[in-house]
């Protein structure tokens, strides 16, 4: 498949994630939209790794394998991030009894 299709698909998913962060007030949904953005980037990295492999396969059969390793590490970091982030959201819910991010704007005072 042409690489442009993959880029545009990943961009669409990423922008949907951005819109989700902007329009929702539930902290958990905002967090899920961040996961969506991370996945869009993962898809783009895999597509680029296969593009690199297609371009350089004649000289180096394993060109582009680093891109997929990066995706692996992004998944590792995302899993760690989710565990800590959800713990923070649970703590916030215990303190203010809501997951509405607008409750947190008193931080600015």
């Amino acid at each position: 498949m042409p690489i442009q299709y993959y880029i545009i698909l990943a961009l669409a998913l990423f922008c949907i994630g951005v819109v989700g962060v902007l329009v929702r007030r539930n902290a958990i949904i905002i967090f899920m939209c961040i996961e969506l953005m991370l996945n869009a980037v993962n898809l783009l990295l895999v597509a680029f790794s296969k593009m690199h492999n297609a371009a350089l396969a004649a000289t180096n059969a394993q060109a582009g394998v680093e891109g997929q390793l990066f995706v692996f590490f992004i998944m590792v970091v995302a899993a760690a991030e989710v565990s800590v982030g959800l713990a923070i959201i649970v703590m916030m819910y215990r303190n203010v009894h809501s997951v509405d991010v607008n409750f947190l704007n008193r931080l600015k005072n």
């Binding site: 498949m1 690489i3 296969k50 593009m51 492999n53 297609a54 396969a57 059969a61 394998v65 997929q68």
Partner: peptide, 20 residues
Amino acid sequence: KIALTNKGDIGLIKVLGKTL
């Protein structure tokens, strides 16, 4: 540029594990 579909073995666990 095209992204190689259905071909190539860089996504297989053997190659990835060796590199990792």
